[in-house]
Design a protein around this nucleic acid. Structure first.
Lengths: 105, 105
DNA sequence: ACCTGGGTTCGATGATCATCAAACCTCGTG
DNA sequence: CACGAGGTTTGATGATCATCGAACCCAGGT
């Protein structure tokens, strides 16, 4: 019912960093990263409630990191790779890459 | 007085991101970035008190981002470029690069 | 010894934020 | 229409954290 857009321009670096500096959101981004295309909400988190997850999706969206779409009446998310790469070349790539080499938290 | 080390290993990605996701610290890193070598504390911030700055230095140090040294009885800081590049290739580079292209906050 | 300049630590305060449950919305299907 | 599955919004709560002043420490100089 809200009329907030399904995507925003990539926010200033600082806001993007803030969006990524949370374990739940970082994991969401990690899962989005390894999926080309879009994923259903429910597949992007565990360990937190639906409402908390929804909050995190909003933060990611408003930072211009992810984008929402409706597929078969169900909400999907995808990573805005190209826009991110244009605004912050190498950054998300490097972050997700480093995530792969370190113990899960 | 404290006996905390002058440098730490680069922390997990998430902690590094948290350390960078603050305007004061990000500016400190930006200034360190454009200086090869070490800088005196006082040259790395403005707009906050000494105690606040000291707090931010500690966060950066504990995340393994910067390193402390004593030159002429005065505290200096330098960016741990190589260690950061090894742990998070392209990340700090990309962040500071993006900072240059966006309005100051 | 006294001061001063440059940093740090402590304690307190206010702001931000992650989290949840409950109510709500919106489809699609029986 | 009623119901349920999947998300969102709201309001409240507790935790984290940025910020400051004040006290402190540690050199150098006078």
């Amino acid at each position: 019912m809200s009329d907030d857009p399904s995507s925003y321009p990539v926010a200033p670096v600082q806001d993007v960093l803030h969006a990524l500096a949370d374990p739940v959101r970082l994991e969401m981004v990690r899962r989005l990263w390894e999926t080309d295309g879009s994923v259903q909400c429910s597949g992007l988190y565990d360990g937190v409630s639906k409402s908390t997850a929804s909050h995190h999706f909003k933060v990611l969206r408003e930072a211009g990191i992810s984008e929402r779409s409706y597929v078969d009446g169900v909400v999907h998310h995808r990573l805005r790779r190209d826009e991110l790469e244009a605004a912050l070349p190498g950054v998300v790539d490097g972050i997700v890459g480093a995530l792969a080499h370190q113990p899960v938290r």
